[in-house]
C-alpha cells in the first residue's frame, strides 16, 4: 500500500510541529521589549563596571582573599548579557577568552581578562604582576559600556540571545570548564540562565500569543534548572564550587538545558524575525 509522503512522515513521527504559519507580530509591539532589554543590559553593565572596579582594586592592593571572593560575583554581570558582549568580538576575546583559545596557553601575550587573572589568583595563588591586566580589564569593561550605549540593538539579536545563552551553557557550563582554576562555574551558569529567562520574560506577551503551550514548557524547564542550581547555593548567596555538583544533578541539568536550547532556537521564528 503506497502511503503519501506526508502520511509516511507523520507515521514516522518526523513531523514534530505542523507546518506552522506564525501570525505576524506587529513591529511596534517589539519596541517595548527591545528597549527594556537594552535598559536591562545597560544596568547589568553598570553593575559589571562597579564590581570590576572593586575586584581590580583588591587585585592591585595585593589582597588575594578579597580578590578571590569578588571574582565570581563580578563575572555574573558579564555572563548574563554575553550575546550582546559577543557582538564586539575583540572585547569579548580580551575580557572573557579561555586559555585554550590561545596557542601559547597561559604564556600567550594576548591572554588577558577574567580568566587570565583567575589563573593567577586561583592556580598560582598570587596577585603579583597583575597591575597591567587589572587596568586592562577595567578599561575593556568601560569600553564595552560605551560601545553598547551607541548600539541600536537589532531585534533578531535580542531575541536570538536567549538561544545563544543556552548554547553557552550547553557547550561550556555543563562540564565546568569555564572557570577551570576557581571552579566557580555555577555562578556563570546562573548568570547565563538569568539572562536567557530575562529575554523570554520581556517577550512573554508576544510569545504567548503565538504559542501558550510553548511558554509553559519553557517556564517549566527554567524552573527545573533553577531548582537544581539552588541546591548548591551557599549561605552568603553564592555557589559551591563546581566539583561539589553530584553526578546525578549534573545529569538532571543536561536534559532541561538542551531542551531549552532547542525550544529557544525557535523563538525568532515564532516572532517572525529572521
Amino acid at each position: 500500500m503506497r502511503k503519501s509522503p506526508l502520511a509516511l512522515l507523520l507515521t514516522l513521527g518526523l513531523l514534530n510541529t505542523p507546518f506552522s504559519a506564525f501570525a505576524a507580530t506587529a513591529p511596534l509591539e517589539l519596541v517595548g521589549p527591545i528597549s527594556d532589554y537594552k535598559i536591562y543590559v545597560s544596568e547589568q553593565l553598570d553593575e559589571l563596571a562597579s564590581h570590576t572596579q572593586q575586584f581590580t582594586d583588591a587585585v592591585k592592593k595585593g589582597d588575594l582573599a578579597t580578590a578571590q571572593k569578588l571574582y565570581a560575583p563580578t563575572r555574573v554581570y558579564y555572563e548574563s548579557i554575553e550575546p550582546i558582549a559577543e557582538l564586539f568580538s575583540d572585547l569579548d576575546a580580551s575580557i572573557d577568552s579561555r586559555v585554550d583559545d590561545h596557542e601559547k596557553g597561559v604564556k600567550a601575550e594576548d591572554f588577558t581578562g577574567f580568566h587570565r587573572i583567575e589563573y593567577s589568583l586561583f592556580s598560582e595563588k598570587s596577585t603579583q604582576g597583575l597591575g597591567e591586566l587589572a587596568d586592562g580589564l577595567n578599561k575593556d569593561v568601560k569600553d564595552l559600556q560605551t560601545r553598547v550605549a551607541g548600539l541600536t540593538f537589532p531585534p533578531e539579536k535580542v531575541v536570538g540571545g536567549a538561544a545563544a545563552l543556552m548554547e553557552e551553557v550547553a557547550a561550556t557550563k555543563i562540564s565546568g570548564e569555564e572557570d577551570r582554576y576557581s571552579h566557580t562555574d555555577l555562578y556563570d551558569f546562573q548568570g547565563n540562565i538569568d539572562g536567557a529567562k530575562k529575554i523570554v520574560d520581556l517577550f512573554r506577551p508576544q510569545i504567548e500569543k503565538q504559542d501558550a503551550a510553548f511558554i509553559a514548557k519553557v517556564d517549566k524547564n527554567f524552573a527545573t534548572v533553577n531548582k537544581t542550581l539552588a541546591k548548591y547555593r551557599t549561605k552568603d548567596g553564592g555557589f559551591e564550587t563546581y566539583d561539589k555538583v553530584k553526578e546525578n544533578d549534573r545529569k538532571a541539568l543536561v536534559g532541561p538545558v538542551n531542551t531549552l536550547a532547542e525550544d529557544l532556537s525557535t523563538l525568532r521564528g515564532k516572532l517572525g524575525l529572521n
Binding site: P27, L30, V31, G32, S35, K38, I39, T152, P154
Partner: peptide
C-alpha cells in the same frame, strides 16, 4: 515598519535614561 523598531527602541531607551 520593521526598520523603525531599532530607532524607536533606542528613543525609548533615551526616554528611560
Amino acid at each position: 515598519m520593521v526598520a523603525f523598531v531599532g530607532p524607536l527602541s533606542e528613543f525609548r531607551v533615551y526616554l528611560s535614561s
